[in-house]
Amino acid sequence: MATEARRDVVVLEARAERAEGGWRPAVRAASLAGVVVAWELATRLGGIPAVFLPPPTAVAAELLGMATGGELWRSLQASLVRIVLGFLLGTGAGVVVGTVAAVSPLAEAVVDPLIAATYPIPKIALLPLLVLWLGIGEASKVAVIAIGAFFPVAVGTMAGIRGTDPQLVRAAVSLGASPFQVVTKVRLPASLPVMFAGFRLAAGMSLLLVVSAEMIAAATGIGFTILHAGDLMQTSKLLAAIVVLSALGVLSTWGLQALERKVVRGRPH
């Protein structure tokens, strides 16, 4: 055995740890800016006709013109009234129906099959029926949005209330809470995070449905503006309206997140 024993020495030394992901915000901003710049260059230098794709600067100018001329605010107001009314009606009904169905076995037996059968229907398909019932005015558009907003909230609320940690319910009952108090003081607050997931889906649904409804049966609103601009080949106006929609979507998400941070307390976010 002539092999010599080898001594390996491994030293793990201190080294400066770099903050991870510090580059992220910059890349995120650059990603958006890069697309806008590329788009601008492609339209200015690439010879793409403005009627197919106007440059971002032209879209911005159009947006500014719509804002100063008042057209933007008129259509924004028309759409927002429909969205807000429909969203509030739909989510409000969703919370109430979801809660009752989760708490009462009878209500559950009544509501569950109805929801299962109607949930998969694309809600916009109901618009002609709603117009027949409620007329071509605001009511039918608000109703279709309310129906769209109802389902995710009802389903989310039901899941949240049924899924409440049974230990928390036990704790509340052992401390003297009535069945009603168990719902209001334990099951509902415990369900808030799931309910907010429903609210976010409902907000997206509202935006989708307002545009669809306005394209089918309206003379005002962002959806109408888009369709009308398309018909007249006013492409920059069409794109300006789409930018407004994108902003609405982002703002509603931020708004709901801010509300959730305020309302959903005591949990790491």
Binding site: D165, L175, G176, A177, S178, K185, P189, A190, R267
Partner: peptide, 18 residues
């Protein structure tokens, strides 16, 4: 089995509250 959305004080007060 503490209520995660309630502060320490509000958890302790729960039984009296209901």
């Amino acid at each position: 089995a503490l209520f995660p959305w309630r502060t320490v004080l509000d958890n302790v007060a729960f039984g009296l509250e209901v």
